[in-house]
């Protein structure tokens, strides 16, 4: 017996999901962050964020298709995290890293928070 492992399958599928997002195909939720709107797929959001997982597994909330985030969350920080969810690449700039970390904490994306903290610490050193 043998099997073939396609080593780039995860990135090929993720690229296709991002193409679907950019063409607004089968997106099923709008995330509102301080009046800015971001369309996305609930399944991708809940696969990446503890907060979205708890929202979309809650019988009372799973059919919501507009979600307003806490007004404290910065739209740019959220946008960077949304792009990360669909590309695995997290854009880190001096001017936005705190907004990204704050949004990641709120979205319960602990691994991103830890990585940002290590990046910050390393850049201070």
């Amino acid at each position: 017996d043998s099997c073939i492992q396609f080593t780039r399958h995860a990135s090929d599928v993720l690229l296709n999901l991002n193409r679907l997002r950019s063409r607004d195909i089968l997106t099923d939720v709008i995330i509102v962050v301080n009046r800015e709107h971001f369309r996305a797929h609930k399944t991708v959001l809940m696969a990446c964020s503890g907060l979205f997982y708890s929202i979309f597994t809650d019988q009372m909330k799973c059919n919501l298709n507009i979600i307003n985030l806490d007004p404290e969350i910065n739209p740019e920080g959220f946008q960077i995290l949304l792009d990360f969810m669909y590309t695995s690449r997290l854009s880190l700039r001096e001017t936005s890293i705190m907004a990204v970390m704050n949004a990641a904490l709120y979205l319960q994306m602990e691994h991103v928070v830890d990585t940002c903290q290590r990046f910050l610490k390393a850049s201070e050193e």
């Binding site: 043998s2 099997c3 396609f6 090929d12 690229l15």
Partner: peptide, 21 residues
């Protein structure tokens, strides 16, 4: 897949969805 020979395929695994139709 214990005990099964795994052959790694580095090429594309699925079709690529175009940026637009």
């Amino acid at each position: 897949y214990d005990g099964v020979t795994t052959i790694k395929e580095m090429g594309r695994s699925v079709h690529e969805i175009p940026r637009q139709d």
